[in-house]
Amino acid sequence: MTALQQLVRVENGTVVADSRDVAEAFGRQHNNVLRDIRTLLDQRPDLALTFERKVAQVEIGSGAQRTTHYYTMNRKGFVVLVGGFKGERALDFRIAFYDAFERMERTIAAMEAEAAALSAPERPSIMDDRDRLRDAIAFVRAAQIAKRCPVARRAWTVAGLPDVFTGDAAIETFGAAGDVDPVVTAWAEDRLEQAHGQRTPTCILFEDHQHWCNAQGIRPAGARGFSQALTAMGVIGFKSSRMQRLNVRLRTMGAV
Rank of each mutant, 00 (worst) to 15 (best):
G160V: 04
A188E: 00
R123V: 14
D208K: 01
L133G: 02
D168N: 14
F206A: 02
N214A: 15
P201S: 10
A155R: 14
N214K: 13
R103I: 04
S227L: 07
A177P: 02
T157I: 06
A138H: 11
D135F: 06
F139T: 02
E102I: 15
T166F: 10
A96H: 01
T173F: 07
R224V: 05
L118I: 08
A109C: 09
C203G: 03
R94W: 03
A186V: 01
D129K: 05
L161Y: 06
P220H: 06
D190T: 04
R153W: 03
A176M: 10
W212T: 01
F93Y: 11
A143P: 06
A169R: 13
A136S: 14
M104F: 04
V164T: 12
A146K: 02
A146S: 11
A116K: 14
A110F: 02
C213M: 08
Q210S: 05
G222I: 01
D181M: 05
G175K: 00
A120V: 07
A159M: 07
E102Q: 15
P201L: 08
E193I: 07
C203M: 11
E105R: 06
A155W: 08
D129L: 07
Q194W: 10
A155K: 12
A110G: 04
A115G: 11
G222M: 03
L161I: 02
A169I: 08
R224N: 10
R224W: 04
A176T: 01
S125L: 12
G225Q: 09
I108R: 13
W187D: 00
W187S: 02
T185K: 05
G225E: 12
A100Q: 01
W187Y: 13
